[in-house]
């Protein structure tokens, strides 16, 4: 019995990559919903991480996120992904308004030697749940996006990774002098993901 419980809590590189890339998919959906980048009606509710989560039904966005998570998963398994940033920009001006930064630290020993680690699914889910909750409540401090917006995803990888067909090189799309809020982190014991959101603190009284 004891042996079986232990066996359940073993996490492999592959499993960890799956959890992390799936997390990105849900997080991206949740951000697009909560920040109103796409209309509310284009989302459906599902249950995930013990929370009601929203997934887009827009075919374009859906396939974009599916491709994204597939690609991220590949990089995660190779241990080559350092950071993923979801950038929200003004559609009219292209100005960067908000950046959701997910920084990843990979346990290189696991990648190099193929060993596994121990951590229960339940615990990881709980950590992810806390992040999702924070994304949903970020409205308390984020500025209101009162113009049509578009989003992009930046991936920071090791230099030796070839740029895939559908991706292009990009500038970092930083915000000058941003407000930053660190959200919770989660750790699969193989990939540790730190979350941070930065935003433009609009000076309301500038002439």
């Amino acid at each position: 019995m004891a042996a079986r419980t232990v066996a359940k809590d073993i996490i492999t590189l592959r499993g960890s990559a799956a959890i992390v890339s799936e997390f990105f998919g849900y997080a991206a959906n949740s951000i697009l919903y909560n920040r109103g980048v796409y209309p509310e009606e284009s989302f459906v509710k599902v249950k995930k991480y013990g929370l009601p989560m929203l997934l887009t039904e827009d075919e374009g966005v859906k396939s974009f996120i599916a491709n994204l998570t597939a690609q991220l998963s590949e990089w995660l398994e190779a241990g080559k992904l350092q950071r993923v940033v979801l950038v929200i920009m003004s559609k009219a001006t292209g100005e960067v308004l908000e950046r959701w930064n997910f920084s990843i630290e990979t346990d290189s020993e696991v990648v190099d030697k193929g060993v596994s680690r121990e951590k229960s699914d339940k615990e990881i889910m709980r950590e992810i749940q806390a992040i999702m909750r924070q994304i949903a409540s970020s409205i308390t401090y984020l500025p209101c996006l009162d113009e049509p917006c578009v989003f992009d995803v930046l991936a920071y990888t090791d230099k030796d990774v070839a740029v895939p067909f559908t991706w292009t090189e990009s500038d970092p799309k930083l915000i000058a002098n941003p407000q930053m809020v660190k959200l919770h982190s989660f750790d699969t014991k193989i990939h540790k993901v730190d979350t941070l959101v930065s935003y433009k603190n609009d000076e309301w009284d500038e002439p």
Partner: peptide, 10 residues
């Protein structure tokens, strides 16, 4: 609204 779904890699 947003139709820019181009993946970018940096």
């Amino acid at each position: 609204m947003s139709d820019s779904c181009v993946g970018l890699k940096m």
